[in-house]
Design a protein around this nucleic acid. Structure first.
Length: 361
DNA sequence: CGGGTCAATCCGGGAG
DNA sequence: CTCCCGGATTGACCCG
């Protein structure tokens, strides 16, 4: 069973499956591709496939046999084109032609979070800092205070505890964060606006280039390092969530297949019992089942002999891996008669690969 | 008080 | 060597 699993935030989920890479949402999509064996079995239970013994064969199979691709989009159920627009006041810096936030003020049509209008002094300080070092520098007390001021304004609408804390307390807390007493690490909580803005940015670009990082840091009045850390942690959280989702899905998939396997095993036993109780059918010639590679339906050829079927089998397997020829015989090799009805049912039996090989041979 | 969350740090590995 | 990233971990803060 070929099973490829991809996390949506990877730019190329399946390097070997071109069709599976076409995901509607490359940011947060969840894509599972079930390869040859499983995909066929899940479609029509049309028998076993023995053509993916190694990775190379699975590559061939995957390219010729469309995998069953499941796109689960747990975090963004609506495709991006149908998603509601981001908060009106938020505009990702690199989505517009202008990069600087000052230029945004000249855009009267767009309602963006214009930090320069809100806190011109802070933006000036950040721009002077360039990479944010001035903000974190112990000597830059002015920058620290300005950052505290802006954070307080960003914090409008935060939880009540922070309101109860009061501006003075938080200011002193934040101020002590940047002073020379760097040994104690103070907890910094990003405001809701900052987090929302970063989230929107993350949806557009899970990874940042330095230019984007700087622009975002300027716009949010954060250090570039903070933006970088936030994106790193955000990617980690996304991956963790995806892992949980993948685990749950694969668990359900495994349970379903186990139940199906159990049911079909039981069915197979009943058919064997039926076959042994009706020796009349033992006189019939062997039946060859050939699977059509295009429609994946089983075509019965009751007149073909076993040797011809075997020859056709080898020929088909060398030319097309999607063609599966199954010659079913009884356990006693001298009596090659088969039960047509049973064969049509047996062709749908989903068995473990080893057992399927045993039956086919 | 314990558990959860999350920003921040440390460290190793890969790419240029 | 530098830069960036992922993974693991730490520590502050929040909440029931």
């Amino acid at each position: 069973m070929e099973l490829a699993l991809s996390l949506g935030d990877t730019p190329k989920p399946f390097s070997f499956l071109d069709k599976a890479t076409k995901m509607p949402n490359k940011d947060l999509g969840f894509c599972i591709a079930l390869g040859n064996g499983l995909s066929k079995e899940m479609k029509n239970h049309s028998g076993s496939s023995s053509s993916h013994e190694n990775e190379r064969s699975s590559l061939r199979v995957s390219s010729s046999d469309p995998p069953l691709q499941l796109d689960l989009l747990p975090f963004s159920p609506v495709p991006r084109t149908q998603q509601p627009p981001p908060p009106s006041q938020l505009r990702i810096p690199w989505l517009s032609d202008t990069l600087g936030i000052e230029r945004a003020s000249s855009d009267g049509q767009t309602r963006r979070l214009d930090v320069s209008r809100l806190f011109p002094a802070e933006v000036q300080a950040v721009e002077e800092a360039e990479d944010g070092t001035a903000l974190s520098s112990p000597n830059s007390s002015a920058s620290s205070f300005q950052m505290d001021f802006s954070i307080r304004n960003f914090n409008m609408g935060r939880n009540k505890r922070e309101h109860e804390l009061g501006d003075a307390e938080r200011t002193s807390s934040r101020a002590s964060d940047d002073d020379e007493n760097g040994s104690t690490r103070k907890k910094l909580r990003l405001s809701k606006d900052q987090s929302a803005f970063l989230e929107e940015s993350f949806k557009e670009h899970p990874t940042l280039n330095p230019k984007q990082k700087l622009a975002l840091a300027k716009q949010l009045n954060l250090r570039a390092r903070q933006v970088e850390v936030w994106f790193q942690n955000r990617r980690a959280r996304t991956k963790l969530k995806q892992t949980e989702v993948d685990y749950e899905y694969l668990k359900r998939c495994c349970e379903t297949l186990t139940d199906e396997n159990r049911r079909l095993q039981k069915e197979l036993q009943e058919l064997r019992a039926l076959k042994s109780s009706q020796p009349f059918y033992m006189q019939l010639p062997a039946t060859t089942l050939t699977m059509c590679p295009s429609c994946e339906r089983v075509a019965t050829n009751t007149n073909s002999s076993s040797t011809a079927a075997a020859a056709a089998t080898t020929g088909n397997q060398t030319t097309s891996t999607t063609t599966t020829t199954t010659t079913t015989t009884t356990n006693n090799s001298t009596s090659t008669a088969t039960i047509p009805i049973a064969l049509s049912l047996l062709s749908q039996v989903h068995l473990p690969q080893a057992q399927a090989h045993k039956t086919a041979s």
